[in-house]
């Protein structure tokens, strides 16, 4: 799994398209797509999950922070299982970094921000590669032996 983060409007999507090509299945929270959990619906070998911070926000509307993290991690574990089942499969997860502003006034936004930060830590720990995108340039902050791209 390749986790890609960075600030908003820094060219994350363009970087992923430039490096992985335009084929593959894109699930984008920005386009209003839901995070599907049934891997039988995915026919390509490349799955890109974009805008995960919005799916995390949805979770915070009905769950406390502990459950959000648990539920999110179980989704991700399922997709990691899917990725590992075939050699050519690749899971790419894109999340905007929303964690460096001032503390939000509203309780629900503080919860969302906390959950996002934890989810990104968990993703980075599981990923074989992590990149930060800064105005179109990537900085690889983690790469293990099995990192494909």
């Amino acid at each position: 799994m390749h986790f890609i983060t960075g600030g908003a409007f820094n060219g994350k999507r363009a970087w992923v398209k430039g490096n992985y090509g335009i084929s593959g299945t894109w699930l984008s929270a920005y386009q209003g797509h839901h995070l599907i959990t049934d891997s039988n619906q995915i026919e390509s070998n490349l799955l890109i999950l974009e805008g995960i911070e919005l799916w995390l926000k949805d979770l915070t509307k009905s769950q406390d922070s502990y459950n959000c993290r648990e539920i999110w991690n179980s989704f991700m574990n399922d997709w990691l299982f899917w990725e590992k089942a075939e050699f050519n499969r690749r899971l790419v997860v894109i999340g905007t970094d929303t964690t460096k502003g001032i503390v939000p006034m509203e309780k629900e936004n503080r919860l969302w921000r906390d959950v996002t930060g934890w989810a990104y830590q968990d993703l980075a720990a599981k990923a074989d590669r992590v990149d930060i995108i800064w105005y179109g340039l990537n900085q690889t902050i983690k790469k293990t032996g099995d990192g494909k791209l």
Partner: peptide, 8 residues
């Protein structure tokens, strides 16, 4: 200026 690191 960097201004892109909070939720919008």
């Amino acid at each position: 200026n960097e201004v892109f690191y909070e939720s919008i």
